[in-house]
Simulated assay, not measured.
Amino acid sequence: MSIMSYNGGTVLAMAGNECVCIATDLRLGEQMTTIATDVKKVHKLSEKVYVGLPGFNSDAKTVLDKIQFRKSLYELRENRKLKPQVAATIISNLLYQRRFGGYFTEPIVAGLDPATNKPYICGMDTIGCIASPRDFVVTGTGQEYALGVCESKLSDVGCPLYS
Rank of each mutant, 00 (worst) to 15 (best):
D125W: 07
S72W: 05
A146D: 05
K66Q: 14
K48E: 06
G52R: 00
I91F: 08
G9V: 02
V42N: 04
G148T: 10
T126D: 04
L161P: 02
V86L: 08
I91C: 05
T34S: 14
Q68P: 01
A87Y: 00
Y145Q: 13
R98E: 13
M1N: 08
C150I: 01
R134W: 05
F100A: 12
C150Y: 07
I108F: 04
V42G: 04
F69T: 08
N7R: 08
S46N: 13
D156Q: 15
A146Q: 08
F56P: 00
A13G: 12
K153T: 07
Q85M: 13
T139Q: 05
L147P: 00
I22G: 01
G111M: 01
T37R: 15
K71S: 03
R99N: 09
D135G: 09
L112H: 02
D59W: 11
N93A: 13
E144Q: 14
F104T: 09
L147G: 03
V63G: 05
L95M: 14
S46Y: 09
A146T: 08
E75F: 10
I121E: 01
T116V: 10
K48R: 14
V20G: 04
Y74N: 06
N93T: 10
T141K: 09
D65V: 06
T105S: 15
P54L: 06
K41P: 00
K66L: 15
V39E: 12
Q68V: 08
D38A: 11
K81E: 15
M1R: 09
T37H: 09
P84D: 07
C21W: 06
Y103C: 03
E78R: 15
K61Y: 11
C129L: 10
V49H: 02
G111E: 01
D113E: 11
V11D: 00
G8W: 00
I90Y: 04
D65T: 13
I91E: 02
K81V: 11
